[in-house]
């Protein structure tokens, strides 16, 4: 259900000042289709820097439209200096409040106003760091690189889930992939295939890996592991301590013990539990 105030509904159903001023003094555009909301604000001032007319065009939900409509009403009649002091909370207040998940609509209004005033005053746009990669969401290479590094993202899909980049038209997928590859050191040369191990080498490596890598980890969780035998590529082990009674012991065995042995000894190993 919509928890909008009557004022929000009223502004949504009868928005004021819809349109675009042709020879506007200030123009501010924020948001994008991909983001789900966008606002273009235009205004005109008189010789005393008083805003005499303002118009908006908005793509978005009811509260985005209501916030834009409210914004134009709020700034008409004010000087540019006065208008510059308007906060997003004031826009929300003007409408009798907005649901908290809709506060971004008032932020969008405030951002458009800031941009329009900067445009009017001839101030340069705030410089963005880096180069835009995803046009749909306006995400830069710097942001993508940071997200990939901080969150160890390995696929375009993961990048999209984290910072939206690549979730729109898809034109930037190649660039995103290139960033991922560069950051993760890929396409690093494939690890040279380990040479075939003799049985003796294999057993020694399995023992070493268990002692050095796996056992300490299990001990920390109150468990333990014992190597029973190595039969071809099958490593037979006994789980002890808390591991033996743990519901998730199969997970430990496959996802941890076996994965580690595959990684550090050889890919073909299978771990089985002896009870």
């Amino acid at each position: 259900m919509w928890e909008y105030t009557d004022k929000v509904k009223e502004h949504f159903l009868n928005p004021r000042n819809v349109g675009e001023i042709e020879d506007a003094d200030g123009v501010g555009e924020v948001g994008s289709l991909a983001c789900g909301d966008a606002l273009k604000l235009t205004f005109k001032v008189d010789e005393n820097e008083r805003i005499v007319d303002a118009k908006f065009k908005t793509f978005g939900c009811a509260s985005a439209i209501a916030s834009s409509s409210a914004l134009t009403e709020m700034i008409i009649g004010k000087t540019v200096d006065e208008a510059a002091k308007i906060t997003n909370e004031q826009i929300a207040e003007y409408l009798g409040g907005l649901p908290k998940e809709k506060m971004h609509c008032s932020v969008m209004g405030r951002d458009a106003l800031e941009k329009a005033i900067a445009h009017y005053r001839g101030q340069p746009e705030k410089k963005i760091e880096g180069e835009i990669v995803c046009e749909c969401f306006g995400v830069t290479d710097v942001q993508i690189r940071r997200a990939v590094n901080e969150n160890k993202l390995a696929s375009i899909e993961e990048v999209t889930n984290y910072i939206k980049a690549g979730g729109g038209c898809g034109n930037c997928h190649e660039k995103i992939q290139a960033i991922i590859d560069a950051e993760l050191g890929r396409p690093a040369e494939k690890k040279p295939k380990p040479k075939r191990l003799t049985n003796i080498e294999k057993i020694r490596l399995v023992q070493e890996t268990l002692e050095r890598e796996i056992r300490p980890q299990l001990l920390q969780d109150g468990g333990n592991i014992e190597l029973v035998d190595v039969d071809g590529d099958t490593v037979l082990v006994k789980l002890q301590g808390s591991c033996a009674s743990c519901q998730m012991s199969q997970v430990t065995l496959k996802d941890y013990v076996e994965a580690k042995l595959k990684e550090l000894v050889t890919d073909s190993l299978v771990v089985e539990e002896v009870r």
Binding site: P15, V18, E20, E29, S32, L33, A34, A38, L39, K40, K57, T58, F59, I65, E135, C136, G168, C169
Partner: peptide, 16 residues
Amino acid sequence: LSPFWAEHRKKASCAC
């Protein structure tokens, strides 16, 4: 109300 509709009408194609 939508800023994109007029734009779309002009361009008749959308980049996104």
